[in-house]
Structures are given as structure tokens and as C-alpha cells.
Amino acid sequence: MQRKNLSFLLANPLAGVFVALLIIFVLSALLSPYFLTSYNMSVIARSLAFVGLVTVGQSMLLILGELDLSLGVIGGLCGVVAGMLMMTVGVNPWVAIVLGLAFGGVLGFFNGIMVTQLGLHSLVLTIGTAGIYGGINLVLTKGVAITNIPKQIQFLGRGDIVGIPVPFIIMIVVLAIAAFVTLKTPFGRYLYAIGNNPAAAAMLGIKVNRVRVLTFTAAGMLAALAGLLMVSRLGTAQPSIGDTWVLPPIAASVIGGVATTGGVGTPVGAILGAAIIGIIENIIVLFGVSPYWQGVVSGTIVVLAISFDAISRRYMRRDA
């Protein structure tokens, strides 16, 4: 019985990434006395929250067999637009946040409509829309940050509840909803079906395009949420928000077991992948690695992680 439970754990596709996360966590704790301090933990959790929200959306798109490279820019643009609504137009900050979220949904929706109605490849389309959305950001702000964001909403980005950063809590709630949707609802099953075989999904009577558009919309809203939380954390709406949210969520998803070809993986796995990347980036800083080298080190670790995954998968296939 005991052995059966153990093998069940090992068979879980999340086991590999979870063990990897554990090892990296323990190693980091052993290597640096500063790693386990509550201050450092909350730094990691807070930065994981922002990239994590984008990762949840991106991973669901990847499961669907799509990809949105404009998510980072959507986060930045929505943050800036909400900031302008508050400061320039004088809208109530809470209303501005809701409008910012809705705007993120609209931008994602536009990506989804273009992909489904014109049959465009999402990778190519979103390279284009990333240019458009990022350009609008610069046109609106002329590259200058909007300062003095009202204190009343800064709690969302800066606050803690029982010592846990608020954005991290929000991210975990979003992740729980995403996990429920992917595993327990018809919509989730449709994601996997379409990601596996869009033609077969259509033959099963699944409204393929509707699922695609909805997922693009949700991913856009999550990116906007990340952007808005970042604005409230910084207290300024900076045009550069979201610049670093493009590739890490994709790398995190792949490390967490989401196939770039679609149909496989979970948002939870993707967040574990994001946590691995987050801890590595943190430990590089703690060790005082030259910033010039940081990209090389973290990039190498990502390449190692996905190579390891590919090799272990090859052995599993031989088993089956």
C-alpha cells in the first residue's frame, strides 16, 4: 500500500518540477544565510506574484496551443491607462482599476478575435499587437511615469496580511480558480481537447473559437491585473511595467510541464516553474553575481531544466 502511494506520487506529472523546486530551495537556504529571512521570503513572494499572474494566463494559452507575446505590454499599458484615469481624468481609483482590468480584457479579446476570425498564427499576430500596445503606451505617456498614485490603493501592491504580501495572496487565489477551471470544468477539458487536436475538438462539437477568444480575454485581464498591482506597489505608473513579463512566463510554463505544442500541463506546474526561476534570480542577487552575468546564469538554468525534462520524458515514453 505504502509503495503504491509512493509510485502514484512519482507518476504525478508535477512530481519532477516539485522536487526540483524543493532541491533548489534547500540548496539556496544552505548556501546563503540571508535566503530564509522573512524579508527575503517576502521579496521573492511579491515578485513571484506579478510574473505569476501573467504565467497563469500564458500557461492556459499554451495548453490551448496558442501564445500571447503581448501580455507584458498589456500589463504595462493597462497600468498606465488606469494611472491616467486616476490622476489626469480624476476617476475614483477603484473604478479606474476596474476599467483597467476591463481594458486588459478588451486587448486580449482583440488578439483572440484576430487569431480566430482571420486564422492568424498567434505568435506572429501578438508580435504585431505587442508593438501596437507598447506604442500606444509611449504615445500616451511620452515615456514619463505618472506619479502620486493615491495611497488608498497602494495596499494592494505593498500591503501584507499576516505577513504575506497581498499581491501574492491575490495570485494564489487566481491560481486556485485557474486550477479548478482547468481540472474540474468542461471549459478546462475543452482547453486540453483543443490543445491536443483542434480538428478533433471541432468534430466533438466543441466551440473551438469561443474557447480561444475567452482564454485570450482572460489572459489579457490577468496581465492587466499584474500591471495594476505593480502600479499600486510602485506608487507610480511607469511605462516600463511589464517589460520583463514576456519570456519568463513562457519559460516557467515549459519548466512546469506545459508543452509549447499544446494540450499538456497545468497552471499549477507553470507557477512552480515560475517559483524556480524566481528563486534562482534571487539567489544570484544574494551571491552578488555581476548583473552582466545574471542573464547567462538564469538562462543556463532554464536550458538545463527543460533539457532534463525532455530527457526524462523520453525514458518515460520507452516505459509506456
Binding site: 486540453y192 481537447a193 491536443n196 487536436n197 480538428a199 478533433a200 468534430m203 466533438l204
Partner: peptide, 18 residues
């Protein structure tokens, strides 16, 4: 292969989706 099965999913998930 083209229009029927969802290759990466289990037999349970393939039937379950309907």
C-alpha cells in the same frame, strides 16, 4: 489521428470530454 483522438490525453479524458 487527424480528427478523432486527443493523442496526449488518457483514455479516460478522451471519453470524458463527451
Amino acid at each position: 489521428k487527424l480528427h478523432g483522438i486527443l493523442p496526449q490525453l488518457s483514455v479516460r479524458e478522451n471519453i470524458g470530454v463527451s
